[in-house]
């Protein structure tokens, strides 16, 4: 069974090519967690609750340094999938490998548990402990060495150093969420699983959270994150998966997803006769369709990437057309997702 997912080395990312850790980040991922195999592999992962199949036959690989965004409507099975991946729920069927080794939460997998950090949606804290005591407690549970230094580094990273003596109950929601994240990464896991980490946070808190995620990625962590704030995911995810009714219906790098599913448009404003512009566009292979938006503006349905749009602009300029605006846009992740849902509902 293991041979089915024999080690695959990502061409883009290898341990040697990982960026240097940023300030506040672990100086290095523990050697136990540092391998060239996928950080997380699941095959045929299925979860049944009585007659309901919450997660249905999911295959997935996450490679070191990858940020995988999991999106889907409520009840799609995202949380259940994540809980199974981290050992918080037992799969009905399927296999999970962490760093190439089979992982079962009900067996003695304490070494592998050290490679996982999990921040659930509703993250409870201990009211009777201070921020420092809370993190110290989890650092001890995970057997973190050089605890004191590590705690200061982590507090610095999540910007809670000044609050270290405060009771956890006195923190704001955003601070609590950052404390939860600090707890999740205190033991320097190679795999970080975040379930709706920014839900209920204000824009500033979300931005702070995004920055922390980027820093962690730079440190080489593999991150699986689910969120309903798709603009955030589009900001830092390398890969996106769409779940629906327990199935993983899409899974691809973000750019590929944009290319494949995002409708690209170019809005061109000309000072000259639009008929000349229309004629020039008609001869371009990358132009799918064109529509007059106003007397001076044309909307072009376009196939290609940003480079292709540049080529198009250059060819129009070479034809001496009096262009005064050339705006290349594409549908964002949210639109792609909504379209996807609409399509599913219609079909």
């Amino acid at each position: 069974m293991v041979s089915e997912i024999s080690p695959q080395i990502s061409p883009q990312i290898s341990p040697q090519s990982w960026p240097r850790p940023a300030s506040g980040m672990p100086s290095e991922i523990p050697s136990d967690c540092l391998t060239a195999t996928p950080t997380l592999s699941v095959r045929g992962l299925t979860k049944r609750f009585q007659q309901k199949i919450a997660v249905n036959d999911i295959d997935l690989d996450l490679f070191p340094g990858e940020i995988y965004g999991l999106i889907g409507p409520n009840g799609a099975g995202k949380t259940t999938l994540m809980e199974m991946m981290v050992g918080a729920a037992m799969p009905t069927l399927g296999e999970i490998w962490i760093d190439g080794q089979p992982f079962r939460s009900d067996q003695n997998s304490s070494r592998l548990q050290r490679c996982i950090g999990f921040l659930p949606d509703d993250y409870p804290l201990y009211d009777d402990l201070s921020v420092w005591q809370y993190l110290d407690y989890f650092a001890r549970l995970y057997g973190v060495r050089d605890r004191r230094d590590r705690l200061y580094d982590i507090l610095e990273l999540v910007q809670l150093t000044s609050k270290r003596h405060s009771l956890t109950t006195t923190l704001s929601r955003g601070m609590k969420q950052r404390l939860g994240l600090a707890r999740t990464i205190i033991h320097q896991p190679s795999l970080l699983v975040l379930d709706e980490p920014v839900s209920g946070l204000d824009p500033v808190a979300r931005m702070e959270f995004r920055n922390i995620i980027r820093t962690l990625q730079q440190g080489g962590m593999t991150i699986l994150i689910s969120s309903h704030v798709l603009s955030d995911l589009a900001d830092f995810c390398t890969t996106i998966g769409i779940m629906e009714l327990g199935h993983l219906v899409e899974s691809a790098p973000l750019e590929e997803l944009y290319q494949r599913l995002s409708r690209q448009q170019i809005f061109i404003v000309s000072l000259g006769d639009l008929a000349d512009l229309e004629a020039a566009l008609a001869s371009q292979a990358c132009v799918i369709s064109q529509t007059r938006v106003s007397e001076r503006e044309i909307r072009v349905e376009f196939e290609g990437d940003a480079g292709g749009a540049g080529e198009l602009l250059r060819s129009l300029m070479a034809a001496n057309l009096p262009l005064c605006q050339f705006n290349h846009t594409r549908e964002d992740l949210e639109t792609i997702f909504l379209k996807h849902l609409d399509h599913k509902q219609v079909s």
Binding site: Q8, D57, D61, L62, V249, E250, A252
Partner: peptide, 12 residues
């Protein structure tokens, strides 16, 4: 057996 979803990571 059902059609597997596109798994970009497997294609690498």
């Amino acid at each position: 057996q059902r059609p597997r979803p596109r798994l970009a990571s497997l294609d690498r």
